[in-house]
């Protein structure tokens, strides 16, 4: 018996653009094993981000089933979706998406606040920042940090609620190759040490090859899979 953290059945997402229907996702069947690290590749416009948004509970599918950590997401209401985003998923964006006026600490604490946790928030946030190697930057604001450091803060924020899965949509897309590699190393080590399931969208073959499984997407469909050696 496999332990799937993600199961999708015939997942579809269509966008209506006037008369034209854009089939961003056109029937995706996908199973992802708990604790694995998976990369999604495909040409621009193939539906990678759309898939990530659905898997991250940021959006609802037009059709199909999605079971996250054993729970049917398609039938959740808005508040339940918010709770799922808070507890089950950690998001890492290409453009960091930190609150620019808040310190690194406050940024990392934010999911705990929305999760209704009142005790030990600061302690947990400092631990998370230390885990991503920023233990000495807790009071810095995003503008006082390098791109790589900002992405580390974002990763700490994604980690803080111990999610079942971390979604990273082109996490190194805005970084130079050196800090991109550092971020990749950090993500890989999180998968190793914490056993957190990780899905990475990337255009970079070198990054994809470091994962356990590469899923190829084209025109909203899974067109192939490979396992790098």
């Amino acid at each position: 018996m496999n332990d799937w953290v993600i199961e999708t059945r015939n997942l579809k997402k269509f966008y209506k653009m006037g008369e034209i229907e854009v089939r961003a996702l056109d029937g995706v069947d996908l199973n992802i094993e708990r604790g694995s690290i998976v990369s999604i590749m495909g040409p621009s416009g193939s539906g990678k981000s759309t898939l990530m948004n659905l898997l991250g509970c940021l959006d609802r599918p037009t059709e199909g089933d999605y079971i996250l950590d054993g729970v049917q997401v398609s039938q959740m209401n808005d508040d339940q979706l918010a709770a799922a985003r808070n507890h089950l998923v950690g998001f890492v964006f290409q453009s960091f998406n930190l609150l620019s006026r808040q310190t690194a600490l406050a940024n990392v604490e934010l999911p705990l606040r929305y999760g209704g946790i009142t005790n030990g928030r600061k302690q947990k946030a400092i631990e998370a920042l230390t885990a991503v190697g920023l233990g000495d930057r807790v009071t810095h604001r995003p503008t006082e940090l390098s791109g790589g450091q900002q992405q580390r803060v974002a990763i700490a924020r994604a980690l803080i609620n111990d999610p079942a899965i971390i979604m990273a949509d082109e996490p190194t897309g805005n970084l130079d190759s050196k800090s991109g590699k550092e971020i990749m190393d950090l993500i890989l080590s999180l998968n190793k040490t914490r056993k957190t399931t990780i899905i990475i969208v990337t255009h970079d073959q070198n990054i994809a090859r470091q994962t356990q499984r590469i899923i190829n997407l084209s025109d909203g469909k899974v067109v192939g899979e490979e396992v790098p050696e």
Partner: peptide, 16 residues
């Protein structure tokens, strides 16, 4: 708007 999107992405409910 982006900030609101981010807050929602990390678990803010409508009411928050």
């Amino acid at each position: 708007t982006r900030e609101i999107g981010l807050r929602k992405a990390i678990g803010a409910r409508k009411r928050d």
